[in-house]
């Protein structure tokens, strides 16, 4: 066997035989997939529950109001107000001649604002009823009907899983090999540093591809219902590039940390906040503009972007090229820093 093959083999065997690293690289991200799948199966805001006292013309005459509001009819205003105060209903409404009275609770500001907004519109529509209609609104979802939350979550979780696997793999190998003097042993053998590094890269890329296969396999189960677009296989170069850049980050961590505990902490400190800030778990669309701009300095943001484009948004193979370039650029810069921090020995 060549040194490259035997070293990669040694690293892969060491990985496969370590139950906890297997769990954290393969099962842990899958757990998140299951959780996200379960939490977001029921998308959309639930209807606002309101109490109607007596006749309320705008509710009784407005078509389609039942899609937004769940209306219960009661007669006693005081009792109904008490129920709103307890949080069982969002609001009470009654009509006194031309005047509509809406009683709501300030406890849940978002919901009460929604209800007030709805009634503002209803009243506005009723006032404009005499004017000829000039505009109509037709609302329609842009994605095809089958699009579910799993489509958004899978590319993000996959890039997170790969980042974790690559960072921890590189950092842990470097620190434990230095602590156990294996690095020193390798330095005393007639083997190139390049061979040692490429063996680690080979092992990490192999692990990342297995992660990808398992992840996509599970997400495509009918239970989760992931539907990949035509050029999904273009995620493979992204997976490899992502592995490289996060291995470089792992090398950096491994160069700084003295113990494996410190390395694990530092790796988490880098990867986890980056995952949130890169829109891995939740889209950043609602985040402030400065945060969205900031997110561009994270390689994971570009990894997510590329993955989503080719896996679920149905974009062509060429669409990932800019993202791929940015990710590899990051990799080169971080690798240069990592090499300068590299130490064979503790002292």
């Amino acid at each position: 066997m060549t040194p490259f093959r035997s070293l990669s083999r040694a690293m892969l065997l060491g990985f496969v035989r370590d139950k906890s690293s297997l769990f954290f690289t393969i099962l842990f991200p899958l757990m998140f997939l299951v959780l996200f799948g379960a939490i977001f199966t029921n998308q959309g805001v639930s209807k606002s529950k309101i109490i109607q006292i007596g006749q309320v013309a705008i509710l009784d005459q407005a078509p389609g109001v039942g899609e937004i509001l769940e209306i219960t009819k009661q007669n006693d205003l005081a009792a109904a107000q008490e129920e709103v105060r307890k949080g069982d209903y969002e609001a009470v409404v009654r009509q006194q001649g031309d005047r509509y009275e809406l009683y709501y609770s300030a406890a849940d500001q978002v919901r009460s604002a929604t209800v007030r907004g709805v009634f503002g519109q209803l009243v506005g529509q009723a006032n404009a009823a005499g004017v000829p209609q000039r505009f109509t609104l037709a609302a329609e979802q842009v994605e095809d009907e089958s699009l579910k939350i799993i489509q958004y979550v899978t590319p993000g979780l996959l890039s997170w899983a790969i980042s974790m696997g690559a960072t921890f793999g590189a950092a842990m190998t470097l620190v434990t090999w230095r602590q156990k003097k294996i690095l020193r042993r390798l330095r005393l053998a007639p083997v190139n540093t390049t061979t040692v590094v490429s063996a680690r890269v080979g092992a990490s890329v192999a692990i990342a591809l297995v992660q990808t296969a398992i992840f996509l396999g599970v997400a495509s189960l009918p239970l989760f219902g992931l539907q990949l677009s035509d050029y999904w296989w273009m995620c493979i170069p992204l997976v490899i590039a992502g592995t490289l850049v996060f291995m470089a980050i792992g090398m950096l961590v491994g160069g700084l940390a003295k113990t494996s505990e410190a390395a694990a902490g530092m790796a988490n400190l880098i990867v986890l906040p980056m995952a949130f800030l890169s829109g891995t778990f939740f889209p950043l669309d609602t985040a402030p503009q400065w945060l969205q701009t900031l997110s561009n300095i994270f390689p994971m943001k570009h990894l997510n972007q590329g993955m989503q484009d080719v896996m679920v948004r149905g974009q062509g193979p060429a669409s990932i090229l800019p993202e791929l370039g940015i990710i590899l650029g990051f990799g080169v810069v971080i690798a240069v820093i990592a090499v300068s921090l590299f130490r064979w020995d503790d002292v």
């Binding site: 070293l7 690293m11 060491g14 003097k181």
Partner: peptide, 24 residues
């Protein structure tokens, strides 16, 4: 060189260790 600490690859058997070193 035999080092002070037992510098072995993690979780490999004795045979796998020596074969790995031999391949180097």
């Amino acid at each position: 060189v035999q080092l002070q600490a037992s510098s072995f690859f993690e979780r490999l058997t004795a045979r796998e260790q020596i074969r790995t070193f031999a391949s180097l």
